[in-house]
Design a protein around this nucleic acid. Sequence first.
DNA 1: CGTTGGGTTGATATATGTCAAAGAGCGTGG
DNA 2: CCACGCTCTTTGACATATATCAACCCAACG
Lengths: 212, 212
Amino acid sequence: MLERMKSYKTYSAGETILWRGEPMEFVASVVAGVASLSKTMEDGRTQMVGLLLPSDFIGRPGRTHVEFDVVATTDLTLCRFERKPFEKLVIDTPHVAQRLMEMALDELDAARDWMILLGRKTAREKIATFLELLARRSEVDMVKAQISVNLPMTRDQIANFLGLTLETVSRQLNAMKKDGIIGFSGRKELEVLNVAALRDATGDDADGGMII
Amino acid sequence: MLERMKSYKTYSAGETILWRGEPMEFVASVVAGVASLSKTMEDGRTQMVGLLLPSDFIGRPGRTHVEFDVVATTDLTLCRFERKPFEKLVIDTPHVAQRLMEMALDELDAARDWMILLGRKTAREKIATFLELLARRSEVDMVKAQISVNLPMTRDQIANFLGLTLETVSRQLNAMKKDGIIGFSGRKELEVLNVAALRDATGDDADGGMII
DNA sequence: CGTTGGGTTGATATATGTCAAAGAGCGTGG
DNA sequence: CCACGCTCTTTGACATATATCAACCCAACG
């Protein structure tokens, strides 16, 4: 089984895991930390096209190269499998192939949601959507009835994710703090003080995509 | 085989083929015309998240609903198959499943390329990229050594595709005409007069994505 | 402590959006 | 076959969100 050929590897924040166009000798899943997929234009403008949080998967059957850079945003642990045996597994196991298809389609949906964010949302809506995304993926403190969110990236990286500049990110974050929607307990540590207002600020419909 | 259960259906420009969230009773491929996938926010802002040109496919194994509206941009002919027998075919034929996976991954790549366009490109770069996309998919007139492109949509629809307003689209198109990069022979009919300049204006690297 | 990589804040520039009006095609019906 | 009335497009004047440029701050870490 897969167990036999898996190995763990850690990367430190900022390290590039794969360069665009580079052959991919393994597939992997994120165990801990955050990684990002990003594209860069000749002149240096960059845009993140995906965020990999724990449990997310990287690598595709039939694709030997990546179309973007994969970078460790925070310190990161990957659980890696060699490509070859993995491909064999996929071919032999329809169930796995099906699961991978499911994942690819989910990613496609996510990418399309991001497209409306990038193309049509205001800076404030972008920030709110981003925070809501992180909140949904993080711990809820039932006792305090508030959600604390850990920003896994710098302002600059957030800007690259949202199609903004770091200054705009900083300003909007502080504006939302002044509005009492969020509160900081550290530069990368914040609490959502008013969940309803945050949802409102995303520009999405009342319960868009939210499964409870 | 599939032959037995296929049927053709035509839609006229502007007709909505599927509404977001609606159950999908069929899968289909585009025979003629252009369709678009788009998302709309509560307040009416809309963003196209995909363009379906002839030979493109719509429908996914395991997905019974669509996450966006599918609209006929021009008059359109679809070749449709009922969902159920199609799903059966997919399960029985690994080759087909593999092909579908391939297509999903291609769409994912396209979506990600669109993300950098939406998040980081200027209006002019967006227009140039769009024209180049259409040119690549259309006829090349070898004799005249020029490429004529048919715009399959209104300025407003182009704007929704590129994350712009229709006025900006109009202005940029006319600016490129003034610069001698393109020429119009009708509102929706144009020729690329300077291919190199067009490529340059996209902001992509010299031969980005171009096969040949 | 000083250095250094974020982060904040301010002043200003500018690309693109918004609002408004006028033109151009084009199909339809008299 | 012309003219009317659409819708789409162009163009202009103006508004504004966000980028850009620049200085300063802060907190962590050696």
